[in-house]
Every structure is written in C-alpha cells, then in structure tokens.
Design a protein around this nucleic acid. Structure first.
Lengths: 235, 235
DNA sequence: CCCATGATTCAACATTCGTTGAATTGGACT
DNA sequence: AGTCCAATTCAACGAATGTTGAATCATGGG
C-alpha cells in the first residue's frame, strides 16, 4: 500500500507564532510538559510539527516563550498593590494579591503544573528562567507582609518569606487539587470548591499572621471581578 | 561489529520482588512516574527489564504495589493518634500527625510527587487506588479536628475537611519545595529549611484553627524522634 | 514573467519506550 | 542421572518521540 504518496500541501494560511503558543499552552495544560508531544501541539495548532521548529528552537524554547508571555502581566499588577504608599489595610491588600493570582492562574493549569513539576527537579536551564520570573513575584508579596508588620497590622514575629510561600503555594494547591479531590473525597459540589476553599483559606491564613487574630476581617471584594484595568496580551 | 552475540546469563542470584520495588521507588523518585523507564528500574535493580514483567503485570502494577507497601503503616499510626479516647490536647495530637507524616514521607519523594502528579489528571485506574489509600488518612486527621471542636479546643466554625486539606497539603509542599526553592530564592541554608518551615507553618496553622489563637502552644516534641514503636517494613 | 525569499509540509532518521515470546539457567525432586 | 519448573535473560516488535533536511507552496519585486 503506497498510502497516497504526495497530495502536497494546500494550506495557504499564515500561522502566527502566538497561535502556536496558544496551542502549546492548551496541550501542556492537558498533558503536562513532558508528556505533551510536538505532534499533539501541531495538531492543536493546525499545522505541521516541523513548522514549530521554524518558529522556535526546541520544545524547551516554546516553554520559556510561554513563561515570558504570561508572567509579566501578573508581576505588573502585583507591584501596583505592593507599592509602599498603598493606604489600604493589609488584609485588603493581601486579598487583592489572592484575586490577582486567581484571575491570572485559574484558567491556566499549564503554568501551574509546569512550574510545580519542573521546578523541583531543575529540568536543566528551565529552572533558572523560572527563578527569574518567580523571584520578583515573591518579593512583591513579601514586601506587603513587611509593610504590614511596620504598620502594626501583622504580628511582629512573622516570618515574611515563609508567609509568602504559604500564601502563594496554598493558592495553587487549592486551584489544582480542590476541584478534583473534594468531589471525589466527599459529596461536595465542585462548582464552588475553589471559591469557598480560597475564602476559608484566607480566613485561616489571616488569623495566623494578624497581630490581632480575632479582629474581624473587613468585607472582601468578590474574587472574579477585575480590580484594575490592565490591557490583556491578545490585542 | 557483531557486539558479542550470546554470552548467555551467568547470574544465579534470586531477585526478590521487594528489591525491584526498592529500585522502582528510587527511580520514580528521581525521574517521576512517567519519565521513569523500566530499563532504568531494571538497571537499578541489577536485572533484566523482562524480569519485571515476570513479577509484575505492568508498570502501573508496580506503582500500585508501591502504594500498597507504603500507605498502610502511615494509616496505622495515624489511627492511633485519632482514637477518640486520646486524652492529649488537640494541638499536641495535630503535631503528632505532622511528625508521623514527616517521618514516613520525608525520605520518599517518589510517592509525594507521584500522588501529586498523577492524582490531578486521573491516569485512568490509578486515581481510584490512590483514593482508596488517601481517604482513610484524610478521615483520620479530620476526626481529630472534629473532636477538637467538641472538646472546645478549636473554633466552632472550622471547616474540618478543608482544615485537613490545608494541613496535609502544605506539609507536602514544605517537603517538596522548600529545600530547593528557599536556598535558590534567598541565601537560606537548606539544611534546616524543612524543620523551620514546618514549625513556622504549624504555628500559623494553629492560630488559624484554635478557638483561642493567642494562647501559647504547648512544648512540641522534636520532629525526628519516633513517637511510637511500629515495626518497619524491612525485616 | 520570473525568480528570490519566507512560510509550510513531507518524509525520514535515530532513540527510546513498554511489552512479549522464545530460549536458557539453576536448582529441587525422583 | 534425568526431569520438571520457576526464575531469568535475549532479542526483537511496534509505537511514539524530538528533530532535521529536502522539497513544495505562496507571494511580492524586478
């Protein structure tokens, strides 16, 4: 069977590298970085696998390009909240951090699982880039905690670096695991699993770090609504 | 080069299936479930890849056998602490949970990352088994929280299921990420990263769930020492 | 009209993987 | 000594993977 040797390509559409990145993000989210194949990404993008190598150097280069596209907007919003002259009470600023994190990462399991999976074991050059992307984010959140101590909102003996780690990591755990674990473990409806999980978590976390744990939290804005008008990446 | 066609096997040593599981655990811990190859496991065990198929049905069967070997001892110890007639204050019992968790999972990154990686996206039949292994553990910890509420040690509005999730998951995050992330992110020495991380975390967590957050914690036993004499798996 | 050039596809390479069937070994029992 | 069976190894299969070089298409400028 010569299986149709050469019906050569009738596809005169230009393929934007951003479209390939979109496909890569989707496949990475579905299968994880290691299991995601270039052929699957190419099929998702509607092009030939070889075309990916025309626009990117390798699979790893696609991942770094993906990071470069997703992280700066997050950092940009966080640094606004972390500005030293922000007059809002610390609880509200931290909740704003939660909302920013949530809005950017909720619908993007790719980066969540990828950071997680590939940061532990360095994946060679990848870990360096992740570090470059993540360190400023950690520093922004941590500065809010530091300011909270000097303002007298937080307990003086708070370990602000670990406090940042706890806040950010548990957020990702809630996003990643609660929707799949909670319904299977209990009868809980998974619709609002993430929302209620985040609220309960923030209440517990705040009692843990506040100078006065029993003082009630101020009313918290809803998670979903966008707090700041920032232009999105897609024009 | 005919590369030495048939120097057939001069290896008359018996291979205990447990030795293969040991090798699998090591390779799984190093490379992750998906990336770990049977050939690497066989080389680690010092046998032929085909021998693995004589003792186990498949790669997946090895993983479930690994789970079956590691989880029951953890559950056994947890259920002792969770017994309803345990008279110790809730804070000490929860700290005991942390110690048990820590002792069993600290040196076993395989199960930690595998549970994490393969539970989110079901990996077909695997997730069911994981659920069978994990649910009793969750229930044991949760019952301590429930008893803590009725005893008046914990806040009455505590969401005990989410509280269990927070305690267990953050513990794994600390074990997995702190040793690699903290030194790279700061200059922190990674020797005691896990120990200090766990202490700071437990202090924050306890303030979050206690009825009286400002009451000081009782003195906590050291993490490393074994609290109960339980026979280990290797005879 | 032609040709240079960028964009895209085809087909294949070399590896690696999980898995399997046949062959071989080593010892236990008769 | 001979035989049987469990344990182990050999060699290979088929599939999937990342990657590459050559070929084809589309298009715009001369």
């Amino acid at each position: 069977m010569p299986h149709a040797p050469r019906p050569r390509g009738p596809k005169p559409i230009r393929m934007d590298p951003d479209r390939i990145l979109d496909a890569a993000q989707e496949v990475f989210a579905r299968d994880g970085l290691r299991a995601a194949s270039l052929r699957a990404i190419a099929k998702q993008a509607g092009c030939d696998p070889a075309l990916i190598y025309y626009h990117f150097d390798s699979k790893e280069a696609m991942f770094t390009a993906l990071l470069a596209r997703r992280f700066p907007p997050i950092l940009q919003e966080l640094e606004v909240v972390a500005a030293a002259d922000d007059p809002r009470p610390t609880a509200l600023r931290l909740w704003e951090v939660v909302r920013i994190y949530h809005r950017h990462l909720k619908a993007d399991p790719a980066i969540r699982s990828l950071i997680r999976g590939e940061i532990v074991r360095g994946a060679e050059g990848l870990s360096g880039l992740i570090e470059v992307r993540i360190r400023p984010i950690v520093m922004a959140i941590r500065s809010i905690l530091d300011q909270g101590i000097t303002r007298g909102d937080l307990r003086a003996d708070l370990h602000t670096l670990l406090g940042t780690f706890f806040l950010a990591r548990m957020h990702l755990e809630i996003l990643d695991l609660l929707p799949t674990v909670l319904p299977r473990l209990m009868g809980l409806p998974h619709d609002q699993a993430v929302e209620t999980g985040l609220h309960v978590w923030f209440d517990l976390y705040w009692r843990g770090i506040a100078r006065d744990p029993l003082a009630p939290l101020p009313p918290l804005p809803e998670l979903a609504a966008a707090p700041l008008a920032i232009k999105e990446t897609r024009p």
